[in-house]
Design a protein around this nucleic acid. Sequence first.
DNA 1: CATGCTTCTGTGAGCGTTCACAGTAGAGAA
DNA 2: TTCTCTACTGTGAACGCTCACAGAAGCATG
Lengths: 343, 343
Amino acid sequence: MTMSNTGGRRKPPTIHDVAREAGVSRGTVSRVLNGGHYVSPTAQEAVNAAIRKTGYVVNRHARSLITGRSDSIGFLLTEPQERFFEDPNFNVLLSGCTKALAAHDIPLLLMLAGTRDERRRITRYITAGHVDGVLLVSSHSGDPVADELREAGVPLVQCGKPMGLGSKVSYVAADDRDGARDMVRHLLSLGRRRIGVVSGPLDTPGGVDRLAGYKEVLTEAGVEIDERLIVSGDYSRASGEAGTERLLAQAPDMDALFVASDLMAQGALTALHRAGRRVPEDVSVGGFDDSSAATEATPALTTVRQPYDRISAEMVRLLLAQIGGEDPAAVILPTELVKREST
Amino acid sequence: MTMSNTGGRRKPPTIHDVAREAGVSRGTVSRVLNGGHYVSPTAQEAVNAAIRKTGYVVNRHARSLITGRSDSIGFLLTEPQERFFEDPNFNVLLSGCTKALAAHDIPLLLMLAGTRDERRRITRYITAGHVDGVLLVSSHSGDPVADELREAGVPLVQCGKPMGLGSKVSYVAADDRDGARDMVRHLLSLGRRRIGVVSGPLDTPGGVDRLAGYKEVLTEAGVEIDERLIVSGDYSRASGEAGTERLLAQAPDMDALFVASDLMAQGALTALHRAGRRVPEDVSVGGFDDSSAATEATPALTTVRQPYDRISAEMVRLLLAQIGGEDPAAVILPTELVKREST
DNA sequence: CATGCTTCTGTGAGCGTTCACAGTAGAGAA
DNA sequence: TTCTCTACTGTGAACGCTCACAGAAGCATG
């Protein structure tokens, strides 16, 4: 990347130009820019007018050089990228975080670290201080990138409960266990008793908690827990399809199915359809997430809504707080049962 | 955002530290960093060793301050965000651009400009020089943001052919017309003659070109063009469903259907299924894009693949060239017919 | 009148780079 | 020898901002 571009942008006004225009000093303009304390109303007014007139916008590089912060944050995905492509939730999360940050005038840098090399490069980039903090999406058990960043003292907020239960980890998650409980109670209320489950990966807290909620409600209701009704997948559509086939083979009398993600539920629907089971007449199906996959499925999926808009907002709030010096914190948000055609 | 964070990152080494370590001057280190011309092999070696030893990473803010460029680029989406959520192609494009830029060590800033306010804020941000260039995704007819940026002399590359055919516009697009031709020829080769089409929006070049390809092939083949077999949608799933219903009402003898996007084709499948038409036995269905929607559909969609990986790579190449002072250019990439179960 | 306090303002220094320039050393040509 | 040319290296200035500090002005208190 060499300089010069055909369009010929002319150089923008500096804080000096604004100061001259307003008849004050650089320092005063800077104070107005950063909160405006200890500035007389007169000066305040003059500076604002000058800013409008000159079209001044602060040079963030110059600011960052002296403050030592970049006023930008990274959105880091350490999953293999296929998941990113497939799962509609990422979009919602990503866009939610982008907008929440935009409200603070903080740009979001997208960082995809699927391969080993990319991970190294990005870790280096982050620890070099090129971003002030990181929003991390990773359902991995023990994510080495996360550990490395934490060790380097980089403010970090994770989406979803992380595995290693270190208390110094900030994260935001939906109440997986409670959501699962709601869903299974709902299935029970429909008179179903042979309820199968395709859980998430059991090396992630999310996967574990949803399965725990399932077992808990069945036990409470006095329904026997049958291991033949339990399989686990990896949240992908394909694994939902395969898992459901296994369940149908192991427990042909299954009359309901709780699938731990909408994407897997889509796969489940395909498998049930192929096996000639009608949904919801023969088998009631419940998903998890309330992603766009839920409404696109036929029949539309009853599911557990994760409040992604609130999750992204909380992630940003927590991260900014942490950058501001506060201690890491965890936030668990309530889920909501959304009833549609599949139950 | 105030300073200080609990973790306490210690301040990173500067170019000065490296220079001292290597026993050379700042200037020499800088030269090594930027290409290494006019540096003796001895010094080169010493500097590289010092960089490794100190773990030095260049401070991009200081560099940007003096060079005037930010070494970062913006990925701008001016569509309403629902499209972003729904369309799997965006993910592929976004991730492709991110990786192509990563190869040049250039971070990507995600910018979502759905609302009027966001558009203003982002335009301001960009024209202030906080990014060196913009990758724009917008199928809008005449995008006001694009015009404004171009006027301000901001290097810009658009995805998809823009409407106003100004020659100073850089863009990368798939060969829509040719892709459509391939698909319709394929349908004809199956013996189908009553071929319906759900086109894209006709105020976009992409929509127009795909329809043109359709008409062209039919005319060549001596098949009469029946206006009752032509409707248009907006690339959304819902519009595909509605359009297909209209076609079925207007032309019940339709035996094939060319849908201008996979997402709309999913909707078409739903409508056909509801009408009791079997796919592909009664009606052959062809889509466009080869997005993940194509393989997820049942039956899997025959479609026209847009080479999204190459598109994103070309967009980045063109943008960097433009930043380097070259003139805007257009690139049209070939499509490929992918045959699956729906035809 | 001096003193202190509060509110406000201007000034110089410096953040970590790159860039232009000056300068050195060595090789080859006149 | 002396000059020129090439290959390389060091140095000061500047980029645009924030921060610490010094100082001014106004007002109350001793």
